[in-house]
Amino acid sequence: DHLVADINALREALGIDGKMHVFGGSWGSTLAMVYAIAHPQNVQSLILRGIFLGTQEDLLYMYQGNAATYEQAPFALSEPGAYVTYPDEWKTFVEVIAPEQRGDMMGAYKAIFDMVPADDAERARQLRAAMAWSVWEGVISNMIPASDDAGKFGEEAFALCFAQIEAHFFANDLFLAPDYIIANLAKIAAIPTHIVHGRFDQVCPLPQASRLVANLEALGAKPATFVMTNAGHSAMERETVLALTAIMDGLPRMAG
């Protein structure tokens, strides 16, 4: 509800009376689709990158993986997950949590984020958890990490905010009904939708985009564009940049 109100306030501030092109990547793709479902009359087209449908299985792929059995078999491919491609980074992420709490990694991390530190040791523990959460996503966002530098994801202030906000939304199912986007897809089926998704995306795996496309097609609404790039999750990888630029350059003027 706050998102819808914020976008409508922005429309008013910019003097937009008619329809607008709505662009979003990753969590932004979720927000873009949720807004379009609420106000399809305001949306001329959707441009979506790195589709995130926000279901529980999507979150488990990234944050749970084989964590529950990691202590006994750290290299076992027992569950699907991003850990398969980034085992060293996964080790750092998993080992923040005690073995007996690894059956619910997101819940265990949130418990750390929610505590009010009583001393320097607890503050250090909270910061370590936030850094591990943030760097995990930052590193796996690129198909080929450019360096050992995690960029903004490795900055303490950013990590503390980023990790706690994400964990809060995930613990509350993104404040959406189960499978909300797919269940309400008919409301946006008439909106021209452009989708760009990295084939090797480990933050938002490709089946999320494929599922969205299949459900649109089942409604007789084939996407205006569906590009699978040879890239990971980041919007800044070359093929994804080129695909998005081509789409944006080809958009018609916003309808008045």
Rank of each mutant, 00 (worst) to 15 (best):
R128I: 12
G250W: 06
H194I: 02
G81C: 11
G232W: 00
G50L: 00
Q126P: 06
H39V: 00
Y83R: 09
F169I: 11
H39N: 07
L176Y: 03
F23W: 02
L185K: 00
R125Q: 15
I112H: 08
A177D: 10
A150G: 01
A221R: 02
P40W: 04
P99M: 08
H39P: 03
I47N: 00
A82R: 06
D149R: 01
H197A: 05
Q64I: 13
G232R: 00
G232N: 03
L60W: 14
V135Q: 03
I191N: 02
V22H: 00
M115N: 09
M105L: 14
N215C: 10
A118S: 12
P87V: 12
P178V: 07
A82V: 07
I51M: 00
Q126S: 08
F93I: 14
R123H: 10
M20L: 12
I247Y: 02
M62V: 15
A76D: 12
R253A: 15
N184S: 02
W90G: 10
E137I: 08
V43M: 05
F153L: 07
V213W: 04
I191R: 04
E122L: 07
R253P: 09
P205T: 08
F175P: 03
P74Y: 07
Q202C: 12
V203C: 08
R49E: 11
T229A: 03
T69M: 13
D6K: 04
E217H: 06
V4L: 02
T69L: 13
A146E: 15
A132K: 05
L206Y: 06
M228E: 15
D17K: 14
G25L: 00
V241T: 04
P223K: 00
F52K: 04
W133L: 12
G220M: 03
E239N: 06
D148H: 10
V135T: 09
Q164I: 13
Q56C: 07
S29Y: 02
M228Q: 13
G250Y: 01
A150S: 09
L48Q: 01
A121E: 14
A231T: 09
Y83M: 10
L251Q: 02
W90A: 12
E12R: 13
M62G: 12
T30L: 09
T92N: 14
V43C: 01
Y70A: 11
H2G: 06
I188C: 04
L160T: 13
V213E: 07
N66Q: 08
Q72F: 13
L216I: 03
A157W: 09
A111H: 07
P207H: 06
F162P: 11
E89Y: 13
R125E: 15
G81S: 11
E57I: 14
I181G: 01
T240L: 04
F23Q: 01
